[in-house]
Structure formats: C-alpha cells, structure tokens
Design a protein around this nucleic acid. Structure first.
Lengths: 205, 205
DNA sequence: ACATCAACTGTACTTTGGTTCAATAGGCGC
DNA sequence: GCGCCTATTGAACCAAAGTACAGTTGATGT
C-alpha cells in the first residue's frame, strides 16, 4: 500500500515519515499528479479552522484512493462530515507513528477508523466515561468563548508545552501565561492543563 | 488483563478458552463474586432474542471492569444499546479466537470495538466497498513495556485524574502513585503527565 | 470623557507534581 | 539461596503550576 500526505506545503511532519518512510508528500494543488491505478492512502491534513471543502475539492475520490483525515484539532463535526463524504478515517495530525500505522492497516483492509470520543457520541446514550463524571457542566465551545490570545495559549499548553515554553514562544512573561491559563480554566470550567488538553484534543467531551 | 466470560451457564465455548486459556467462566448470577480491583474484561453473552437488560442488571460497571458484548445474533440495535450503556465493544459469540484476542487488545487499551456495518450506518455515509478486516489487531507499544499496575496508573492519569484521585481509586498512597509515575516517565521517556496523556490518547509521540 | 475589555505584568502565596535519598516485602528464575 | 523485578511507602526536597490581589496600557464603543 502506498501512502501520500497532502498538506498546504509539501513539508511532512517527522512522525509521518517515521511511520511510512517511503511515503509521498505533496501540496494540495498537486493532487492531480498522482499516478492513477495503484492503490494509495491519501492523508489529508486539515489545519485549525479549515473545513474539508477548503482542503479537498468535492470531486469524488477514485476507487483506488482511500482518504484519511489528519486533523490539527479533531472536531466531531469535521470528522463526521469527512466520513460522510467517504473518508475512511480520521486521526490527530500529530499522532504517533505507531498510531498512523494502525490506522493505515485498518483502512487498507477496508475498515474505518474513528476516534473514541466521536464513536461514543455517534452511538448516543450515556457512556461509562460520561457517567463517571458526576455532574457535568454544559459543554462550552472553547474556541469561541476564548479570546484570540487565550486560544493560542490553550493550543500550546494542550500540545504539551510548559508555561515557560509557551512564554518564550509567544514572547511574553511566564506570569502572563499563568494569567491567561487562569482565565481559560475559569471560562471552560476546567481544573488544570491536563483537562484542557483532553478537551482541546477531542479526547473527552 | 484478566478475562471473564459470563453466560447463562458456566459452559464456555472452546473458542473462548482457546483465545484466553486462563479465562474465568461464570454464570450471570455469580457476577458479584468477582474479585474487585483488578482490571478485567467481562465478556457477556447475549443469546438470541435477549436484551442487555435481561443478561446484565443495569447496575453501573465498576471502573476496573470493561464490558464486551458477545451476541449470538448481532443486531445493530442491541449493539448500539450496549455501547450506549458503557460497553466497550461487541462481537459475535462464535467469533474466532484470533478475533476475540484482537477485540481484547483494543478494549484493553481503552478502545472501542464495533462492527463495520454498524459503524457505517452510524456514520451514515457513502458505501465504499468493504473488504474483510483480514489480520492484525491494533496494538500499542506503551502497554507492553509498562507493568500492569503502571498501566492502571497511566490510564487514570491520562484521563485527567490527579495523583490524589489515582491513589484513592487504587487504594494506595499518593506517594506510590508518584513512584509509579516516575517509573512510567522513565520507561517511556516522557517529561510529565501531560505528555503521558498525549501519548496514551494517541495524540503524540 | 468615560466605561469596558483584552493584554500584559508584578509580588506573594498555596498546592501539586516530580525527584532523590532511602527501605520492606513477595514472586520468579537460575 | 541469591539476584531481579514489582509493588509499596516514608521523609525531604525542589520545581512547576495555579491563585489572590493589584496595577498599567491601548483599543473600542457610548
């Protein structure tokens, strides 16, 4: 099975090549250049805020093409939309190589790969995960309630950065990072950065 | 991971024991006899025409219990219902041992196992030709290098629990939790619990 | 002009997380 | 028996995270 990563630029993440050393990487505009006929998995990256339409023309996929969505910020709507359009799966853009290989195996065999949180919700009803969380505050759409700066901080923290790292990256004081984080926790009703990460990465409701 | 098959009678199918030679088999009424605390996958058999209610009292599962439905006649409604109630998967009662092992692996790592037909219908998308999922279970590397206890700690922490909460849940000291965490970080080459969460949830490295 | 809000920073503080010294006890292989 | 590993815990410690209270600046709207 061949693999082809499609992104805005032709710059692959290290993890991609680690998972598939012989993978091809191309820009979205170059999609037509793909040699037709041989089976291939198209890994289409969707950056923050993008929709599938913007990244992939609504043209139907060829029969020999399998599509997997690589989402920077997994969002149920986007994932469901993609699957509805024939995609075979969706996972995090920064997923580990082993995860990518798992996805490829499932997809390559005609299977579907869907994140757990989405699956739970598709199935509907109360899951154990939800039941465990005794009282649940109404879910807030984090990206809209947060200010622009807060969103930046939230993304970095959710990706595993320390306060110091966030501060350096945004050229502000560590103290300011803390201030933003406190505001974020307050607005989203979260306890700490780990929960923030779970929320933003779509792991938890 | 322990396995326990629950049926009307305590008569296991050969395939079950072939998949898990050390599995426990019990009648539904004996469910309360399970030693609590140690993680276990409950394989609950649902015979033709039965509903989940009849086989399993609606009592909530304990945190250390994972439930997989074994359906004599897999029916989308029953499966959806089971998943909605917190089950981690569903497969055919007479599934091959290899399939059972695959399911166990996925479920044991916190995943969900759902049949393809149901998944497609839940998603409600296009009908891509589906081939049989030939071989290969999705497997993760972290769960093999960690000891059983460490896996328990890792899961809870990755889910957002504090050290105190993990300690209470596992009935050990907060100090011990820290010890386990240090070992986990060391083995996986991680920095802190956030990175552990990203790793376990398949988001990162 | 005034109110409001986002962004930013400081000092001081409490809490949590994580590490570094230990140490004890049980299981398992050689 | 003797290592080796796992699980467990203690005391002490440092670093990081998070909170409380207080303040400046600039943009924006009424």
């Amino acid at each position: 099975m061949n693999h082809c990563f499609v992104d805005r630029d032709a710059l692959p993440l290290p993890t991609w090549l680690e998972a598939f050393p012989r993978a091809r990487v191309m820009r979205r505009e170059q999609l037509g250049l793909l040699p037709s006929g041989e089976p291939v998995v198209l890994w289409v990256r969707l950056r923050s805020g993008e929709t599938l339409d913007s990244a992939m023309p609504p043209a139907a996929l060829a029969a020999w093409q399998l599509l997997v969505l690589l989402a920077d910020e997994p969002d149920d709507e986007v994932v469901a939309d993609a699957l509805g359009r024939g995609a075979s799966g969706c996972c995090n853009t920064h997923a580990a190589p082993e995860v990518l290989q798992q996805v490829a195996l499932v997809v390559g065999n005609g299977g579907l790969w869907v994140g757990q949180s989405l699956l739970r919700r598709l199935v509907g009803g109360t899951s154990r995960a939800l039941a465990a969380r005794s009282e649940r505050p109404p879910r807030v759409d984090w990206s809209t309630v947060l200010s622009e700066r807060e969103v930046q901080v939230a993304r970095l923290v959710a990706g595993g950065a320390s306060n110091r790292e966030v501060a350096d990256q945004l050229s502000i004081t560590e103290r300011t990072v803390k201030a933003h984080l406190s505001a974020i926790f307050e607005k989203l009703g979260l306890r700490d950065r780990l929960q923030l990460s779970l929320r933003i990465n779509g792991v938890q409701v």
